[in-house]
């Protein structure tokens, strides 16, 4: 059996985390290819429905990346995102999902290395968790 390779969807903000991912690429920093990046203007525009949809479709993890507190290009998008993620993960936890499949991380434009490190960590963690059981469920 081939080794389980997690499929991770990342919603990243244009101004920080996307730039960090870009920097990781141009600096040739190695990180696992398991992550599919979706660029948004701000972490504050990540509605929970965007996170839920891939999870229910069977994505193994969802990463939300934004600017560090105080650095959001739109001042407070990341603070609002944080509250939404707190709600989302509390719901997941209490409704019987593995809430560890959802990560929120602050990664600034200059932190290409941190981006690579976080993706590596997340992939390792999710490998331990195993495939998302939602993959097998059709009755949703």
């Amino acid at each position: 059996m081939s080794q389980f390779e997690p499929n991770i969807i990342a919603f990243v903000c244009n101004w920080c985390t996307y730039a960090a991912a870009d920097l990781a690429g141009t600096s040739r920093i190695q990180y696992p290819p398991n992550v599919k990046i979706i660029r948004l203007m701000c972490s504050g525009s990540v509605d929970p429905i965007f996170v839920m949809k891939p999870l229910l479709e069977g994505a193994d993890g969802v990463l939300i990346g934004g600017c560090h507190p105080g650095d959001c290009h739109y001042t407070s998008g990341n603070y609002k995102a944080r509250r939404r993620i707190v709600i989302l993960k509390t719901i997941l936890e209490n409704m019987g999902f593995e809430s560890d499949r959802v990560w929120l991380r602050w990664i600034s434009a200059s932190e290409g290395k941190a981006f690579a490190g976080i993706v590596t960590d997340m992939v390792d963690n999710i490998k331990k968790l195993g495939p998302n059981p939602m993959k097998e469920k059709w009755d949703l």
Binding site: I49, M52, K53, G58, L88, M95, W138, D139, L140
Partner: peptide, 28 residues
């Protein structure tokens, strides 16, 4: 395509997504 991926899908789609989205938006 969706049906292809899981072998079958429930129609209409996204029932659980509907309830969980409603939950996320207003449960507080």
């Amino acid at each position: 395509n969706w049906a292809n991926r899981k072998g079958r899908i429930r129609m209409p789609t996204d029932t659980l997504l509907f309830h969980l989205t409603r939950m996320n938006h207003m449960i507080i």
